[in-house]
Nucleic acid binder design. Structure first.
Lengths: 322, 322
DNA sequence: CGAAATTATACTCATTTCGAGAATAATTGG
DNA sequence: CCAATTATTCTCGAAATGAGTATAATTTCG
């Protein structure tokens, strides 16, 4: 490009400036008894998306408006994920760009009833290798490890082969490494690169026999979902966003199960309690659960005041190995 | 809006879909002896920005291309900051949107020579209240505190008044609170809301007598810069991005000074060393500095291998209070 | 009804990490 | 050689963390 740097965003830019279409895409997350779920449309193979329109005051507002229309509820929390650009593939002569701006939205499980074309689906339908709540899923060592190793061995150069092996080992915790729940996107990208997910085989005539389990999505929606999950998994460790997903009143165990659903791994119960308590994130309601079995649990509510009191309200999580 | 959720990003969206202009804006950071600096254009009151063009393969590529043209050097590190939308204020009848996609880019100080219309400026020209390397700047308690208090007292309702006071106290560390270097954006927004920065007075006839020190920028560029600084300050704590700003070989003190320049506060020297060492982030070159005074310091280089070895290469920083 | 099962909650303890400061080492400039 | 200066190493107590044990309050079942 030859355009000179413009001193002002108001200036008319020289060069081949052009117009683009703007799309808003949402990863709407809720946690139900079935686990962590995402709002989908179509054959449960697409994320809800809509155009940014002139009537919208702002991007956030645009997204909020139509997501609320769709779910019928306020979105407690919206956060921008990533913006990317693609040439429009609708095939007109005239070149056109599509700018996609993706968001992560958190809502409450009680609002999460399915209806019409929308459906709540478990994260783990799309990423079955991400759920380590009862240890590493068998498919990781039974299927992924050998396929990724085979992919690494395809490499001609020895150095490339080693690099691929190492990347796979880090991402999936092979060779006795720890599992890192935050690497959702890296793992998906690795599987894509290795041609093991359906999305990677689309352009080519590649055989589909090597595909691994996990529902695919249209376009790059599964990648966006991976981005959202990764963001959320990392964010719950230092911001009290979990509470956006909780009912107004809850027990410690419910809170813990929610965190475990999101992070895909178990936490140590007493330590979890200790951390939440010492950060003053919750307060007792005075009530207890009328549950069926065992000692009744005290009910708590989120102390919304912490959001004002402290700049950085942390939610540290004790993620255990087992 | 009445458009229905589209099941596919390829589908033509119904409703008032429209085209938008896409602008790329860069916060290019380097650290010189003069401290942390940002690349500016114009009267040093604008960030470099350019249009996203059809020839660009991708957003990253577009930005990289022209920033490299401008600085004459590779950008080691680029990261997306935020995307926002504004109605075009150039005033044509036809409504038009401008989508601005901002990036944070890190480059090396040795490349940071000024030339032509471009100039490297210290962060702290724009945010003089952010430099706490020799304690809180006098202006914080001499000017900001009283102005913000006055603004709080303008509020009619008592609850609003209290809320404003508390926000100010958290953001700026009043009433004996700790200074939190990460709140760069919150502080700028607070000052904007209180009408204390030039940008806030533009639309109105407000008197400029209450403005606080600090160079303003066109449009919302100072806000974008604040976003970039905030991102970088928080990121150096858990990712080894500082090294993007360092020469190939450096001493511990140089590294420490860079971190201090960025974070705007001092760190404890022995503890800083301990942390960097125990994370294996650097390795000795075997050489020492031929400096003037004092015991010669060993020279180190960044161990690029850590980026491959570990998924999360942390750079924890011991930020001290004094 | 009473023991077993079940869940909640409280406590303990060793290990690691962290913040702060003191001590020692290697230079240069008188 | 001594003072000043910067680098580097150690020490130590406080706090945070990981893991496990003990106790409490229920329901369920024999």
């Amino acid at each position: 490009m030859k355009g000179s740097i413009s001193a002002s965003s108001k200036a008319t830019h020289s060069g081949k400036a052009h117009d683009a279409n703007v799309d808003l895409i949402a990863v709407v997350v809720a946690v139900t008894d079935q686990g962590p779920s995402v709002l989908t449309v179509g054959q449960a193979n697409a994320l809800p998306s809509g155009p940014f329109e002139l009537g919208h005051r702002s991007l956030q507002f645009g997204l909020r408006t139509w997501v609320e229309q769709q779910t019928g509820h306020q979105l407690g929390y919206i956060e921008q994920l990533y913006t990317f650009a693609d040439r429009d593939r609708t095939g007109e002569q005239r070149q056109q760009r599509v700018i996609s701006i993706s968001y992560l939205a958190l809502t409450r499980a009680e609002h999460a009833a399915a209806s019409g074309k929308r459906a709540w689906r478990s994260w783990y339908d799309y990423f079955p290798w991400e759920d380590h709540r009862s240890g590493a899923p068998p498919m990781v060592s039974d299927i992924l490890q050998s396929r990724l190793l085979a992919w690494a061995d395809e490499a001609g150069q020895d150095s490339l082969r080693r690099e691929r092996r190492q990347r796979a080992a880090i991402a999936f915790g092979f060779d006795g490494r720890d599992w890192n729940e935050d690497l959702v996107l890296q793992r998906y990208e690795l599987l894509y690169e290795a041609g093991l997910v359906e999305e990677a085989t689309r352009g080519s005539e590649q055989s589909a026999s090597l595909l691994i389990p996990g529902t695919s999505m249209i376009a790059d929606h599964r990648r966006i979902l991976a981005t959202g999950i990764a963001r959320l998994r990392s964010k719950i460790k230092y911001r009290p966003v979990v509470f956006e997903l909780m009912p107004p009143v809850f027990t410690f165990l419910q809170l813990q199960r929610t965190v475990e659903a999101l992070s895909g791994r178990l936490v140590h119960k007493p330590n979890f309690r200790r951390l939440i308590e010492q950060q003053d994130l919750v307060e007792e309601t005075g009530e207890t659960t009328a549950d069926t079995v065992g000692r009744p649990a005290k009910l708590f509510r989120f102390r919304h005041a912490v959001l004002d009191e402290r700049a950085v309200a942390g939610t540290k999580l004790p993620l255990s190995r087992a």
